[in-house]
Amino acid sequence: MLIMGEVRTGLLQNSAEIEERDHQAVLGLLAGERVRMSRRPIVYAVSPDLLTGVDCRLPSASRARIRGVGTVVSRSSITGGRVLQGSSYVRVTRGEVNYRLPWSHYLARPGVVEVLGKVSGPDVADGFLAFGAPGEHLDLGSVSDRFMDVVQESPVLDLRAPFRSNRTRLRWVAETGEPGVHFTLGEGQERTLKVTHQGEFSPAVVDLCEDLALHDWLLTTLLTIVQRARIGGASRPEVSARLAPAVDTLLHLWMPGARIHPSLAALWESLERTPGFSRQWQSLVERIRDQLAVNTLALLRETNG
């Protein structure tokens, strides 16, 4: 059995952090279901899980024609009232028959895509992580994107983001085995993650992938802000003005591993050693604060003449 998913992460299109009480309106995608929220150590809210039906070819590194039928599980989440994620995943299994069954069969197995015929898990995983053009293949990214768009369409939001940013795309696959994690930073906005965990798959693995996608986006976005500030190139007040959104919006959101199940905490820790997400974040934060401090001193000097 193979489990694979795609997380898309971006900035919520709203000028301010959204308030706690607005999360239900923004993420309440299903009547009769409450948005789940946690407030410690950071405000995090997640929509109910929703299903999308698919019947299409699955990605394959060997370009094999593999047909899968079933449902994708998706959800939207907001962290710190600022960062929006759309996340989808499927469990790929071999179907018992090689023809399509009535839809009620697939709805009795939420989140499972059954393959009609033979399938090799590693072949599908490699095909998926290769980020080829989706063509006729399963497109988890478009489903995740849709779950971001639905939230952005909420009338509660003013659609004025404090700065420009890109959506990142993280594709992940998970399997059971000796615990390990392998993160690859691809070109542009593409990232891949291979997770090996002990025991049965649980949604805690999805939490881990979403948390990693969140922090990768924070780091990517902060790097872009620092680059755009042209430290050393532009005037000090200009640099400060360009760095300000980072201070207002992003710096306090760094909480790696905050919602990770203890059984998976070691995987986050190994990513902290290499590539060392928090080390890079800390050094960027210090750089920003130093720039602001130097500018403040310059301003003070001018004022005191």
């Binding site: 299903l51 019947d55 299409c56 039928v69 989706p134 990214g141 489903v143 849709r146």
Partner: peptide, 12 residues
């Protein structure tokens, strides 16, 4: 409701 997808449905 999760509509029954016709063959060729690959995403949303």
């Amino acid at each position: 409701l999760v509509p029954d997808p016709p063959p060729g449905t690959r995403g949303w």
